[in-house]
Design a protein around this nucleic acid. Structure first.
Lengths: 299, 299
DNA sequence: ACACATGTATCATATTTATGATACATGTGT
DNA sequence: ACACATGTATCATAAATATGATACATGTGT
């Protein structure tokens, strides 16, 4: 098996052009460098440098190898810097998992202001929970609590799944229909309208329909757009209906570009939780993000 | 300095959960694994695993470290596979440098059909030439020849920098103006029109104007779009003028959605070259790409 | 053309690192 | 509660690796 140190030495030779220089850079002896290189050359089965008078010139194979490993190797060398036992703080990286739509209307606007690095990861909730436990994620925003003992959940807001419409939709007429309390009428009126949906999940629409009409919706949305925020933007154009979490369109409802026309007979409401490991070295950063969330969600 | 092998061992411990298992996976002894881990722990200054009865449980620091290094480390471990002295061929990766617009109208459509991996790199020509020499690129498409002895150039096509217009532009009128051969008239007529430009370089327009009017253009384009292909698409809508390389809009000119209204009094013409290292292990793949280019450029 | 500066390869030797043997620790099943 | 399976830590020792000294090679400047 190739010794990873050979790679480091190889890269340094490639950069410095001499074994002596490499030795100085890596704080090892020149014969050691020579040894590393010859070991690597033997291993890969190709000469990697042409030894000219003063300089090591990479061969074609050397160039190919170099390109194959510079990027990951450089990144790996960087890792060390973040772990030196030093007093100087380094900028940590926080990984947060949530659904795409939530990110767009909450954190996105603040990303550039964060005093640490951020990785947003989109995925489904059980997977996110697993990754949180494994340490791949540091914080998740989810409507479903997990059961792991290492993870603490904290509710911070609610989402209501509601029926919204563009401002040009005749909500007065719909109110009249609602007043009849006749499920058949209501359903029929709704099915007459133009509906929006997303490529991925129809979960909200299914649940909403199921809760209010006791069955699956027997129609397909007329327009399929990439995500829930696209729906909100489309509705803002004037017409159409969709079932979405209310917090995704608070501002649009407030300024009148979208109407909340029905919260449902039985209301569909989820609690939103923060989830993070109880033990974490990133409490400060996580709290920072939580604060931003609370600010955005409290309107 | 950390020994990169410690990382490999650390990752394996994280994955297997035991030192013994790690030893088997890495073909080293269990005490060796123990040594690597304790060395790494000493170095980073934190315990990385809790030793429970049967399993190594990563500590918070262990999780953070793991996340910091899995990706690059895994990639680095992959490198080895591509260099084993084996008879089985592996899929090579070819790096090609060219300008963004050229890529879009030539290679883009064939990318999925290539029997090798491809990395397209966009940059300026001198830099690309340098990277070609260093082995970071394997092939470049450029209008400027370099001088390095290791690099061979081959002309394969030409580009004419021409004045094009949307189909609704009154080219008959412009022909009349051209007939006057009065530079002032021509310039005036052109400046009356709506012009397109790109965010980045105005080089084509500058050169064209300079060659035909002996000065810099004293107006700014009315519409600034991201790249030359955007210009072509915008012009296809009907109106507007732009100076672009002809090969970017061959098909649009042919089908009449764009008019080539002036090649200039003095023609602005570049030769396009392939550039690659004379010594390369990727001749076959490079020839494949060259063939595609010749096919696209010959119309 | 020469001395010199710069750089690589090869030794014997020193140091580091890995190993096998084994003691010790902790869950598991009866 | 006990024996046993599974796993880690710690030795002395073996093997691998790194080092300093030095020979050798090749450009550079006078």
């Amino acid at each position: 098996m190739v010794n990873l140190e050979w790679y480091r030495t190889f890269k340094a030779i490639y950069k410095t052009g001499t074994l002596t220089g490499t030795a100085e850079v890596l704080f090892i002896s020149q014969p050691g460098v020579s040894l590393h290189l010859s070991s690597l050359e033997t291993y890969v089965g190709h000469k990697l440098f042409d030894r000219t008078g003063r300089k090591m010139i990479p061969t074609e194979h050397g160039k190919v190898l170099f390109n194959a490993l510079v990027d990951p190797l450089t990144k790996l060398e960087e890792v060390e810097k973040n772990f030196q036992r030093s007093t100087e703080k380094h900028v940590p990286t926080i990984s947060v998992g949530m659904c795409f739509e939530t990110f767009q209307i909450t954190l996105e606007q603040y990303v550039s202001t964060l005093p640490f690095n951020l990785i947003i990861s989109f995925g489904d909730y059980p997977e996110m929970l697993d990754q949180l436990d494994k340490g791949i994620l540091d914080l998740i925003i989810t409507p479903k609590k997990g059961i792991s003992a290492n993870i603490e959940h904290e509710s911070f807001s609610h989402e209501k799944i509601v029926l919204v419409a563009g401002k040009d939709v005749d909500s007065i007429a719909f109110k009249e229909v609602l007043k009849t309390k006749n499920k058949g009428f209501i359903e029929e009126w709704l099915k007459q309208q133009k509906w929006y949906g997303t490529t991925g999940d129809m979960e909200h629409l299914f649940n909403f329909w199921n809760l209010n009409f006791g069955k699956k919706p027997d129609f397909r949305p007329n327009y399929i757009v990439p995500n829930l925020n696209s729906i909100v933007r489309c509705l803002s154009a004037g017409t159409g209906l969709a079932v979405v979490p209310d917090f995704l369109c608070h501002s649009e409802i407030d300024n009148g570009s979208i109407q909340l026309i029905w919260e449902g007979d039985k209301k569909l409401k989820n609690t939103l939780y923060f989830g993070n490991r109880k033990k974490t070295v990133h409490h400060e950063e996580i709290d920072h993000i939580k604060t931003l969330f609370r600010k955005v969600m409290a309107r």
